[in-house]
Nucleic acid binder design. Structure first.
Lengths: 336, 336
DNA sequence: CTGAAAGCGCTTACAG
DNA sequence: CTGAAAGCGCTTACAG
């Protein structure tokens, strides 16, 4: 592979001139520039990006820490991230942590060792302040926390209003006439669970209804955990007439389990989800859910990171993106 | 951030010794090594990987070209790739091409510009031979083609036997008593479509049945396209009693459409999928499908790439991984 | 507008 | 076992 040196000798100029002709064309005289470009063409020369990055102390890569890329929600957020990263000239290193702290640490080493310039963290698992230590004193930590956000304003955050979105869904259910509403949450430690639960409880209280802890089952956002949670609910002393699942997979799993028990949705039991992944629309019945702007979440997060990386921003604002209650066919008034 | 120079002065040795103490500890005397390690500790020194990579002309990163990371099938293959990449010390750059040739080219530039050492191509869209040109004459192109494979043995391939798997599914359907079987394929240009169709037609002919082109609809592997294909099938002169969809999403979309038309699966019409993504098991009814070893496909592909990168292999063998016919509840004998 | 030179942070023959 | 030196392929002040 030819190097800048080969081009410079073929064109009869110094390597500095070649470098300039490529990076700041207006700095070199037209005839010289042409000569250089011809040599580049003739040799099929490509600047060695590794050398360039090394020189400029930038990796032009970011790592995204995702709990599970197999989850369609995260897959779409990552897609959004990638779109703007590519436009901005950054590569995205995939850090699928699968809940392993060791893998997470491994990925964070990519920034410690200067292989990545920044990180988008799609979970609140790591303390952003600890994360910030990865950057040397002088420079602003290039971190953005998206989707599942920590309770700090140490770094910019991009998220939805989980409390309000969950409240909207519960109000929908209550409006339909439901009084006993089951809930299938995410992991207890997740801020997502806490916020959505707060929204739900708020709606219940505002309607003068009691929130029943016995009808609140902890899931892990998987289809199977929704299935299992439904089973618990089936055995509850006073079975709920509606179940609010904190993501679509769990809702789909729950509907499946209810059906196996002879309960049809929504005639016998209403089931609602959260996220609005593609499968929600094609579920049977089509799922009532909260639509999250998945790609936009990703694009926004990457946009903010690009700003930080470009020195155009360093404050730690929070972006709250709008959600939408999608009423479809999995929820209805309870049977009389 | 401290550099190797800082460590060397603190430890009172040359930078060469620091480098050795870190990379080939047995090459330096025990007391010296200890001194170096203490200095490393004291300064919280981390070797600059970018410098190291630049020096050694290796990026320790590979790019995976995936048609769509939002597709659970690819997401899981990528997860498998990532697992072994991380163990092997490689980062994975995500190249979600979304069918755009421009984006694909953009990602391939990562290897031209030496930011990636190899590529795993999850589609047959690019001619591997053209791809191979990215490598300079002397060195072996570090490419592996997985899942959707081209008809060349230019590079190693990791795949399943699509013909046999599709034949097995069609035999299952035929065995159930179906005579008119509809097919929802992937894009016509895809080798996946061609092979699975060949398997299906082979099974039909072996059973003395005619394959009806009118009952073969082209889809694009999305839920929506399965839905739309089902609609076409509904209007067919002689409606099929079973439909073989070339992936699970399309099967789920088709079942949805049939149900909307008042046809229930499998009582009125059997529907089969392909892949066995998580949603297949939780579909309503649970989907009869072909299970592909998604993670293993990814892990194998990355293993082969690691071998090539490590100079341990260069031949272009093909790995054919086993599949499994999963008979669940979406297929049954046709109504009498 | 152009070139000579320094240097980014490492690694690795080459001596000793 | 250790050090001085060269060099990986670029970019960028600094002169001219």
């Amino acid at each position: 592979m030819s190097s800048i040196r080969d081009v410079s000798s073929l064109a009869g100029v110094s390597v500095a001139t070649v470098s300039r002709a490529l990076r700041n064309p207006q700095q070199v005289a037209e005839p010289t520039r042409t000569r250089v470009l011809e040599a580049v063409e003739a040799l099929d020369y490509r600047p060695n990006q590794m050398a360039r990055n090394f020189r400029s102390r930038q990796a032009f890569a970011i790592v995204v820490l995702a709990p599970d890329i197999g989850n369609p929600f995260f897959a779409r957020v990552v897609r959004g991230i990638e779109q703007v990263a590519q436009r901005g000239g950054y590569a995205v290193l995939l850090g699928d942590t699968q809940g392993s702290a060791a893998r997470e640490a491994e990925y964070l080493n990519l920034v410690r060792s200067r292989q990545a310039d920044g990180v988008i963290q799609l979970s609140a698992r790591i303390d952003p302040v600890a994360l910030g230590k990865l950057w040397s004193a002088g420079s602003a930590p290039a971190i953005v926390n998206a989707c599942e956000c920590a309770d700090t304003d140490f770094c910019p955050r991009v998220r939805i209003d989980n409390v309000a979105a969950a409240r909207a869904m519960s109000e929908h259910l209550i409006g339909l006439g439901h009084r006993r509403i089951g809930v299938v949450t995410g992991p207890a430690a997740s801020p997502l669970t806490r916020d959505r639960l707060a929204g739900h409880i708020g709606a219940m209280q505002a309607a003068g209804l009691a929130h029943k802890p016995a009808l609140t089952i902890e899931g892990d956002f998987s289809l199977q955990s929704g299935f299992d949670a439904a089973e618990s609910l089936l055995h509850a002393a006073n079975r709920p007439t509606a179940v609010f699942c904190f993501n679509d997979e769990m809702a789909i799993g729950a509907i499946r389990r209810f059906k196996a028990a002879g309960l049809s949705t929504p005639a016998d039991i209403s089931v609602a989800g959260f996220d609005d992944i593609d499968f929600a629309r094609f579920a049977d019945p089509p799922l009532t859910t909260i639509a999250q702007p998945m790609e936009v979440l990703g694009r926004t997060a990457m946009g903010v990171l690009l700003d930080i990386l470009g020195g155009r921003r360093s404050s730690s604002e929070t972006h709250v993106l709008p959600t939408n209650l999608m009423v479809r066919e999995s929820t209805a008034s309870p049977a009389a």
